[in-house]
Computed example of a mutant assay.
Amino acid sequence: MAAELAELLTIARDVLDAAAPRFVEGVGAPSAVDKGRGDFATELDLELERTLSRQLTERTGFEVHGEEFGGPQLTSGTAWVLDPIDGTFNYSAGHPLSGMLLALVRDGEPVIGLTWLPGLNQRYAATVDGPVHLNGQPLPKLERGKLSDAMIGFGAFNIDGAGRIPGIFRFNLLGALSRLSGRVRMHGSTGIDLAYTASGVLGGAVVFGHHPWDNAAGVALVRAAGGVVTDLLGRDWTIESKSVLAAAPGVHEELLDMIGETVRAADTAGRGSDAGSEER
């Protein structure tokens, strides 16, 4: 299995490398498909997903589940999971913090993860057993850390937002995090938050989204680096999880305690956030 994964990782690297110049060329592309409030796809999203999906399927025999066109179900069997442009808002604005995310998922578990950040000339890749490679060079395993020393990536929010994890809960969580962590960072890209957690740039990442194309590649990287990945409730992350909490050992435990205290405070105040019961 290790030899097979290594071969598939090499193919995936080649495919993403070939697409990187087109990715860079398209920076600043305007919205082409409206997907809801504050969410859209550019023509490059569509083009890159078609191109990458075709090449991956032809070269590996595995189908692709992409953000824009969907694909096979992911709880069983083997498939690639692709986000052709992660951080689309950044990308369309000409901001360099965006990238291509690709994972190979087997029976719901990511076994290969790649995060390509062409605007930063950074390429993160790993198989499930590690190590994580940055631009072809292996990175050390994550060491045990403390939240007070760590920068934490934090997902986007609108304080007036409703849904599974309401904006007011995210706001309260951000406040608690600002008191306990070294620094908070909002990159506007789940892929960057998770890749930087895997490399040790960040001590952890709080991800409110549940889409597999956003999360699978980064989850594979963090696990390969020796990090801890759960949902916000502390349950092991799976392809069906509704959120991600990824961090270095030690930091993860402190983040989980902080989230639990914020949930309890919300319940006591009678605000009833779904964040505390999203999977109960």
Score class of each variant (00 low, 15 high):
Ala162His: 09
Gly163Cys: 09
Gly163Trp: 11
Arg164Trp: 06
Arg164Phe: 13
Ile165Thr: 15
Ile165Gln: 14
Pro166Gln: 10
Pro166Lys: 02
Pro166Cys: 02
Pro166Thr: 03
Ile168Asn: 08
Ile168Lys: 12
Ile168Gln: 09
Ile168Phe: 10
Phe169His: 12
Arg170Phe: 07
Arg170Met: 12
Arg170Leu: 10
Phe171Gln: 03
Phe171Ile: 00
Asn172Pro: 01
Asn172Met: 11
Leu173Met: 06
Leu174Ile: 14
Leu174Phe: 07
Leu174Thr: 05
Gly175Tyr: 00
Gly175Gln: 03
Gly175Cys: 03
Ala176Val: 02
Ala176His: 11
Ala176Tyr: 06
Ser178His: 02
Arg179Leu: 01
Arg179Asp: 00
Leu180Arg: 12
Leu180Ser: 06
Ser181Pro: 06
Ser181Met: 00
Ser181Leu: 03
Gly182Arg: 06
Arg183Phe: 01
Arg183Pro: 00
Arg183Tyr: 01
Arg183Asp: 06
Val184Arg: 00
Arg185Ala: 12
Arg185Leu: 13
His187Met: 05
Gly188Gln: 13
Gly188Asp: 11
Gly188Asn: 14
Gly188Phe: 12
Gly188Lys: 12
Ser189Ala: 07
Thr190Ile: 14
Thr190Trp: 01
Gly191Ser: 01
Ile192Gly: 03
Ile192Ser: 10
Asp193Cys: 04
Leu194Ala: 15
Leu194Met: 15
Thr197Pro: 04
Thr197Lys: 03
Thr197Arg: 05
Ala198Pro: 02
Ala198Thr: 00
Ala198Asp: 09
Ala198Arg: 02
Ala198Met: 10
Gly200Val: 12
Val201Ser: 05
Val201Asp: 07
Val201Lys: 04
Gly203Thr: 07
Gly203Ile: 07
Gly203Phe: 10
Gly204Arg: 05
Gly204Met: 12
Ala205Cys: 10
